[in-house]
């Protein structure tokens, strides 16, 4: 491609990126603006005195640390459970020999298609009967259940592509099946495991509707609720509301910045296999 055309493409991409990110720039900008200034006709404005206090409101009254911790506990547990369960399932589906293998594989994959919103109402009744509503488990269990089908699909695809020579020699040496899976297979499938972990993180960290349905105790709510609660509490203070939104988005953007290559690699691997 000629250099002029490349430059034109560069300029075009910069423009698109700017337009695409503009809503977020606007959000960031107005998160340090006093609520009264919202009604000026300017599109972006640099306040003479940036109102950093919006972030104090967000941190303290938005109860950011508490919701953050809840999100961390729920998301962290979900990732660990999802990875352990998906890798066990994927191993049983790809390497082990049993009668109902392909049947159960299909059944698990159905989980990708069934909308969680359709199972929300009865799940609420079941969780209530089991005493799981208003507990961390009330979120960890459904989040894991929703993450496992897709994760198993990704890991199964990846496992099929790695040769079984190493396991065979381990079997010869008399290693137990559990050692094979967690000491030999787990390190080999690490790239796919990271993809699974990151996608699970993004889904759970940002999940709203199950958390809204299964959790009513304020002390157990996750980060997206800090935005919701705050919107009620500071209904006319848009600046502080925007500050909460910015704070809530930062962890996910940081995680994404750290692992974005892995997401791309995971998607690429999946797409190539079709």
């Amino acid at each position: 491609m000629s250099t002029t055309r490349k430059k034109v493409l560069w300029a075009f991409f910069l423009l698109v990126a700017f337009v695409q990110l503009f809503p977020l720039i606007w959000l960031l900008n107005f998160s340090i603006v006093d609520a009264n200034a919202f009604f000026s006709s300017k599109i972006l404005l640099w306040p003479e005195v940036p109102k950093w206090h919006n972030y104090v409101n967000a941190w303290v009254d938005g109860k950011f640390p508490k919701y953050f911790l809840n999100s961390l506990i729920v998301t962290g547990s979900t990732i660990v459970l999802t990875v352990v369960m998906s890798i066990s399932l994927a191993y049983a589906f790809t390497r082990m020999h049993w009668k109902w293998r392909s049947f159960f594989y299909t059944v698990i994959l159905l989980g990708i298609m069934i909308p969680i919103h359709a199972t929300l109402l009865p799940n609420f009744a079941i969780f209530k009967a089991l005493g799981l509503t208003d507990s961390y488990w009330g979120l960890i269990l459904p989040y894991t259940a929703v993450s496992v089908p897709l994760s198993t699909f990704i890991l199964t695809g990846f496992m099929r592509s790695i040769p079984s020579a190493m396991e065979e020699s381990a079997v010869m040496d008399g290693a137990s099946i559990y050692r094979i899976v967690f000491q030999i297979i787990l390190p080999l499938t690490m790239p796919a495991v990271v993809t699974v972990a990151v996608t699970t993180f993004l889904t759970c960290w940002n999940e709203f509707i199950m958390a809204a349905t299964f959790i009513s105790k304020d002390s157990l709510k996750t980060l997206p609720f800090s935005v919701m609660n705050f919107a009620g509490l500071y209904s006319s203070d848009y600046g502080s509301q925007f500050a909460v939104m910015v704070l809530t988005s930062v962890p996910a953007i940081v995680i994404y910045a750290m692992f974005n290559e892995k997401i791309t690699k995971g998607v690429t691997a999946g797409a190539v296999k079709g």
Partner: peptide, 24 residues
């Protein structure tokens, strides 16, 4: 080993997909 690998995943699936659909 197969049971240990498959049953937990299946139990989760039953708890959050099969049972709710039946109840629904």
């Amino acid at each position: 080993a197969i049971a240990i690998f498959v049953l937990p995943g299946l139990a989760f699936f039953v708890l959050t997909f099969v049972a709710p659909i039946l109840l629904s």
